[in-house]
Design a binder for these strands. Sequence first.
DNA 1: ATGGCAAATTGAATTTGA
Length: 259
Amino acid sequence: MKITSWNINSVRLRLPLLEQVIRKVDCDVICLQETKCQDTDYPEQAIADLGYGYQAYRGEKSYNGVAIISRIPLDDIQFEYWAGKEDCRHISAVANGVRIHNFYIPAGGDEPNREINPKFGHKLDFVDEVTSYFAKQKPQKSVMVGDLNIAPLAEDVWSTKQLKNVVSHTDIERENLLQLIEKGGWTDAMRSYFGPDEILYSWWSYRARDYLASNRGRRLDHIFVSNDIASNVSGAEIFSEARGWEKPSDHVPISITLD
DNA sequence: ATGGCAAATTGAATTTGA
């Protein structure tokens, strides 16, 4: 089973690119974040026509929104609210007996200080709650994917020094995401597959004049698998080329193959 | 250290992203 995660940054605007991704990646399940539309505006039929007839989605106007689209049946669709907000940042479903959690963790605003920036507090609280949730639950035969908006390792950013005080790579976020992995019994499948030294990015800012020339990326998107199935991960890919397409998302699709 | 872009909503300007 091949599983992909992609922050699509508007599912309606990027339907043609979704088709491109499907052609390139050819996977069973795709988890989307930032669909940015209400369920009544979600293009269910168009996605079914692309071969993904099994869908679970939750969206809201303008912001957030997550979806799981699949070629294989999705069972027991669920979602949770996090950090005291009723927004659309999580959905989960079972495919082939594997529970897949799809998350869109808050970006956290500009200032890495919860006293003056509530968005940063929201992000930290969100991560803490997810950590507790899985620490209690001890997930098995499970996968956690999504735009987690944290680059935990030095090898996940273009400059660990220059991003030290930049939200997504501050010490507390890095520590907390590593704690989430540890306490939940997860394995960082992408990092394990590529090894500790490989520089890995899944996101490049829209603001660079030439994203490839400056190459100031971060690994904000992740695929974790529960430790019991970590040895079943037989492949992993980052579709960096998608960042160079016409009208791209600022995130690229990442995927793993689970035997 | 700063600036730089994109999408959605609303109707030219604002919010949010990261």
